[in-house]
Design a protein around this nucleic acid. Sequence first.
DNA 1: ACCTGAACACCGTTCAAGT
DNA 2: ACCTGAACACCGTTCAAGT
Lengths: 227, 227
Amino acid sequence: MSTAEQSEPKAEPRRPLSRERVLRGAIELADERGIESVTMRALAQQLGVEAMSLYNHVANKDEILDGMVDTVMEEINDATSSISGEWKSAMRRRILAARQVLLRHPWATGALVSRTSDSVPLTKYYESLIGLFHAGGFSYDLTHHALHALGSRALGFTQEPFDDSQEIPDPAALAQQMAAEYPNTAALLESVTHDADTTLGWCDDQFEFEFALDILLDGLERHRDAG
Amino acid sequence: MSTAEQSEPKAEPRRPLSRERVLRGAIELADERGIESVTMRALAQQLGVEAMSLYNHVANKDEILDGMVDTVMEEINDATSSISGEWKSAMRRRILAARQVLLRHPWATGALVSRTSDSVPLTKYYESLIGLFHAGGFSYDLTHHALHALGSRALGFTQEPFDDSQEIPDPAALAQQMAAEYPNTAALLESVTHDADTTLGWCDDQFEFEFALDILLDGLERHRDAG
DNA sequence: ACCTGAACACCGTTCAAGT
DNA sequence: ACCTGAACACCGTTCAAGT
């Protein structure tokens, strides 16, 4: 009637370690505390083991990062591969579904763009997008350009060099303060924050994502019809 | 007639250290050997000094990274701020000029998207783009959407989750090998590598960048005219 | 005011030793 | 076959001491 008592954080019931469990643990850690807190020692501790044990199941830390990305890509494939229909609508729904997966793993976009080795689930994802374009009347050549044009948007994310996620406590004050040196930026800020449809933050990221996505899909369709 | 002989690598004639010199040294190091080789110790060595001396001129390593990005952004501002004319052509030329600067500093795109603090030269750059859009008949609201739609492309770069920079030694063989599991990808690969206008690598990144940029600028113009 | 040696807390990783 | 303690080479950073 007595199992060993243990008060370690996250102590799962001590199943044997495996590559699978190492990757799941790493993803859990990254989701909860950020990718930078995924260290060999912290990951081992969460799994109730010493850091060195991890090397029995993965070659090194890079392989963990690659494995984490692959796991997320499989999640995306599960969420998107069955979405079909008219090419533009299907493409749109697939990409937005991929986006939902990535929003659950904020660290994954950075890991995706920085990895160099190629990934089977990533290749599968693109294989399926390519099929969708081709079935929609796109030549393979135009499909190739289309994938470049979409860039990381094909997977449901963009990376921008400014941070719009933060709330602006007093937009009017900020605009006034910027007005002297940055008049256009101040005017934009004032206009945008007065607008009814952006009440969430000062940017509705989902709206902006779909806005750009639709411009690209429409533009690509025009190229197809002109070709 | 005799200056002290010294055989250290990169030994500049021992000017006094300064924040300016620290940042220039860091950029030089990153350009030549990659951002991951910019460590406090390596940077100090290149400057002919001990690692600890750097802390007299910058607060910490993050401030060095921020300073490196700001320096590159100033280079971009110098290269773009005088480009004017009809909005679409001017926007296009500015963005392509920014791209040329970033191609000289391959590490800068990664540093740009990962930094959180806001940057004066980055704000200046966007101030000038906003001005160009507004002068071109865009409302501030539409300009805001436009900047989101361009994303990092406004600065001349994209980040894609696959690497097309590598040469494919034998594309036909690769296509045949992929054909069973990834038929669409194989067909795309075969079509693209047979094509005359992509003889450089298997992707002409400059072409792809302009292709997507033009779709976006044209699409934005349509929105302006429809509004 | 600027530079430095020694030290600290943290990495990823190796290796010989345990079971 | 899997796990571990001790150790190594490397980080960024602090601090007291030098000039």
